[in-house]
Computed example of a mutant assay.
Amino acid sequence: MKTKTTLLLFLITVSISAQEKIDYSSKVTTIDSTIATLYSVISGNKGEARNWDLFKHLFREDAKLIPIGKKDKKITVRYMSTEDYIKTSGQWLVENGFHEIEIKRETQTFGDFAHVFSTYESYKSKDDDTPFMRGINSIQLFNDGTRWWIINLYWKQESKEIPIPEAYLPKQ
């Protein structure tokens, strides 16, 4: 019995160690790979789990996710950590299905930092023809010499009152 317990604990430890050693380095070598990974990791069909370890890997430890919204009829912002985002949005993404697709991007870089203005459309299923939401992500990134980190992700959804300007939409 003691041998079986020891073997079981060993296998659990090896399994946990193997999970911790997943190499995500290829996901953050360029701005393009980092942004593509951001969109892909939050996207999935209804009932499909998200890879929150990969999501957290994209962001510096002190990064903020900042949505603009309305509260009590006033425009406001909310500051979240990656953990806050997972707690407030993770279950909704899985229960409803959510695919966010970049439709246009403007990137500005200066040495080791970058700003990406990324227009997106959101769908409940990748088979949907019409988005249920559109908006713009403002993504600030930092390169530490080995990889790109998301420092802040700041976004606003389009509304009837504030449509996305034509300059930030794909040319027809």
Rank of each mutant, 00 (worst) to 15 (best):
T34K: 10
I35T: 11
A36N: 15
A36H: 09
T37I: 13
L38K: 08
Y39L: 10
G44T: 05
N45H: 13
K46A: 12
A49S: 11
N51R: 02
L54F: 00
F55N: 02
K56G: 03
H57I: 05
D62E: 09
K64W: 01
L65P: 02
P67F: 02
G69D: 08
D72V: 12
I75N: 14
I75W: 12
T76M: 10
T76S: 13
V77T: 15
R78N: 11
Y79I: 00
M80D: 10
M80K: 06
S81E: 03
T82N: 00
E83N: 07
D84E: 10
K87Q: 09
T88P: 00
T88E: 12
Q91P: 12
W92I: 05
L93T: 06
V94D: 00
V94G: 02
V94M: 01
E95S: 01
E95W: 00
N96K: 11
H99A: 04
H99M: 09
E102C: 08
R105W: 00
E106P: 00
Q108S: 11
Q108E: 14
Q108H: 14
T109K: 14
F110V: 04
G111R: 15
G111Q: 15
D112R: 15
F113T: 05
A114E: 09
A114M: 09
H115Y: 10
F117D: 08
F117W: 04
F117S: 10
T119P: 10
Y120E: 15
E121Q: 15
E121W: 05
Y123F: 15
K124S: 14
S125A: 14
S125L: 04
D127R: 09
D129G: 15
D129L: 13
M133C: 13
G135C: 06
I136E: 03
N137F: 03
N137H: 09
Q140W: 04
Q140T: 07
F142W: 09
D144M: 10
T146C: 03
R147E: 07
W148V: 03
W148L: 02
W148M: 07
I150E: 10
I150N: 02
N152E: 13
L153T: 06
Y154E: 04
W155T: 09
W155G: 01
K156E: 14
K156H: 12
Q157R: 15
E158S: 09
